[in-house]
C-alpha cells in the first residue's frame, strides 16, 4: 500500500516538474529557431534572433533604464531599511511590529492597485519626470525584500555581543559598525539580489509610470509582444533568464541562498 503511494507520488512530481518548466524551455528553444513563426520543436539551430536583437537599440535602452532604476532603488532601499530593521529588531520604537508590517506590506498588495495609486499621487503633486516616479515607486517594491531578510538575520543575532563591545570601550555607534553591520552583510546581499530582480522584473507598477523618455525592459517587451512579435522576444527572454540565474548563483556564492527562509 505504502509503495503504491510512493510510485504515484514520484509520477505526479515528474508530471508537475515538466509542467512547471514547459514555458521556459519552449522560450529558450524558440530563441534558437531559424524561422519567424515560433516553430517548435526546433530542428535546426540559428542565432538569427540574437543578431537581430543586437541591432534593436530600443531593447538596449530599456535594459539600461531598468538596470539604472533597479540599482538606485535597491541602494536607497538598503539605506532606508538597514537602520529601520535595527530599530525594529531592538524594539527601540513603539509599534515596531506595525512598522515591520507597513514596510513589508507592498509585497502582499495587488501591484496594479499600487501602480494606479502612484499614478494618481504623482499626477496630484505634478511630478512629471518618469525616471523619478519609477525610482520612488521601486523603492517601495524593493523595501519588503530587504526588510524581511534583515529582520530574519537580526532575529538570529546575539545582541549581547554589542554590550560586550561596549564593555570593552566601544561607543554604541562604534559597536554597531564593527559588530552588527558585518554580521548583517550576508542578509543585505541576498535581500538586495532579490530586491534588484523584483524591481528589474516589475511591470504591474511600472506600467502606469513609464513614458517615452523612460521605458523599462518588461514594458518594452510587453509593447513589442502586443504589436506582433517575432522570436527576438524569445532571445531577449533567454538572455534575461541567464542573467537572473547568474545573479542568484552569485548571491548564493557570496552568502548561500539556502540560508534564506523561502516560506
Amino acid at each position: 500500500m505504502a509503495r503504491v503511494f510512493i510510485v504515484l507520488g514520484r509520477f505526479w512530481a515528474l508530471l508537475v516538474i515538466v509542467f512547471l518548466l514547459a514555458p521556459i524551455f519552449v522560450t529558450v528553444a524558440v530563441s534558437f529557431s531559424p524561422s519567424a513563426v515560433f516553430d517548435f520543436p526546433v530542428d535546426r539551430l540559428s542565432t538569427r534572433w540574437y543578431e537581430r536583437l543586437s541591432r534593436q537599440s530600443s531593447f538596449w535602452e530599456a535594459l539600461g533604464t531598468s538596470a539604472w532604476i533597479a540599482s538606485v532603488s535597491t541602494l536607497l532601499a538598503v539605506a532606508l531599511a538597514t537602520p529601520a530593521a535595527i530599530a525594529i529588531a531592538t524594539r527601540a520604537i513603539p509599534g515596531a511590529r506595525t512598522l515591520a508590517g507597513l514596510l513589508t506590506s507592498p509585497l502582499m498588495m495587488p501591484g496594479l492597485v499600487v501602480g494606479i495609486a502612484f499614478l494618481q499621487a504623482f499626477r496630484a503633486v505634478g511630478l512629471r519626470d518618469a525616471q523619478t516616479c519609477l525610482v520612488i515607486a521601486h523603492v517601495i517594491i524593493t523595501l519588503p525584500y530587504i526588510v524581511r531578510t534583515l529582520l530574519a538575520s537580526l532575529h538570529l543575532f546575539d545582541f549581547s555581543l554589542i554590550d560586550a563591545a561596549r564593555t570593552l570601550g566601544s561607543t554604541w555607534p562604534g559597536a554597531v559598525a564593527k559588530v552588527l553591520l558585518p554580521a548583517l552583510f550576508p542578509a543585505v546581499v541576498t535581500g538586495s539580489a532579490f530586491a534588484f530582480l523584483a524591481s528589474f522584473d516589475n511591470y504591474s507598477i511600472s506600467l502606469f509610470l513609464v513614458d517615452v523618455t523612460a521605458r523599462t525592459l518588461p514594458i518594452q517587451v510587453l509593447n513589442y509582444l502586443e504589436t506582433g512579435a517575432d522570436p527576438t522576444i524569445a532571445a531577449i527572454s533567454t538572455i534575461l533568464l541567464c542573467f537572473t540565474v547568474l545573479a542568484l548563483l552569485l548571491a548564493d556564492r557570496i552568502v548561500g541562498v539556502r540560508r534564506l527562509d523561502l516560506g
Binding site: P23, L197, S237
Partner: peptide
Amino acid sequence: LPLTASAIVKTFG
C-alpha cells in the same frame, strides 16, 4: 527557476 523568470516571458512561452 519559473519564479525568477518574468511573467511576461512565461506568458510568451
